[in-house]
Design a protein around this nucleic acid. Structure first.
Lengths: 95, 95
DNA sequence: TAAATAGTTCAAAAATATTTGAACTATTTA
DNA sequence: TAAATAGTTCAAATATTTTTGAACTATTTA
């Protein structure tokens, strides 16, 4: 396409991250539990393989929708509602 | 994935529709002009083929992001901000 | 009625995204 | 130290999305 502003590109990453049933279910799960959960626990709840989980968490993180903290050998992820709000609630202002 | 509610499925269609640079540019263009514009005019502005335009307008329409009115041989499209707001601004409430 | 215009449909090609399994790193536990 | 656990990486396979061009429908204009 024609050239995009930085924020348009970032918006697309956010929308792409949200445009998948597994990732939306992960977000839903995180929203309902409202605390940092391990990738393993979430992956089990979603019934996906570790590899697939790793792939999806990376996309969510790169979009800025989750934050990640490593504790020992586990990775805990948490919803980043600030990014969510910035790109979704105030989307019109970026147009 | 596990089963999705109706509204989750609709959300995914909205996010998928937004997860593409051409469609985001169309939305941007419509937002800036704030009136119904013909598919042809928009397609020219985006520098895409008629076929590609037809494909993208269909996805936007099926997601409910635009409304379409046929006048003679032309199709005029307009942003549907109600859908947009419903799925994006109130997204959290559907989680 | 013939030609032009706006848009659609179809199937094939190309591009992207997702899944899979095996091998890997890092950390913890026995 | 060995075994187990949590997660990553890679390349190949699969699935999905997007583009392309040709043929099509519907409508308008000459």
């Amino acid at each position: 396409m024609t050239k995009q502003t930085h924020s348009t590109e970032a918006s697309i990453n956010v929308f792409k991250a949200l445009a998948d049933p597994i990732r939306l279910a992960i977000i839903q799960y995180l929203s309902q539990h409202d605390q940092a959960l391990s990738c393993g626990e979430i992956g089990q709840a979603m019934q996906i393989s570790k590899t697939s989980g790793s792939y999806h968490f990376k996309i969510l993180q790169e979009a800025g929708l989750i934050t990640v903290r490593k504790v020992g050998r586990e990775k805990f992820v948490k919803l980043d509602r600030v990014t969510f709000d910035h790109y979704l609630i105030h989307f019109w202002q970026n147009l």
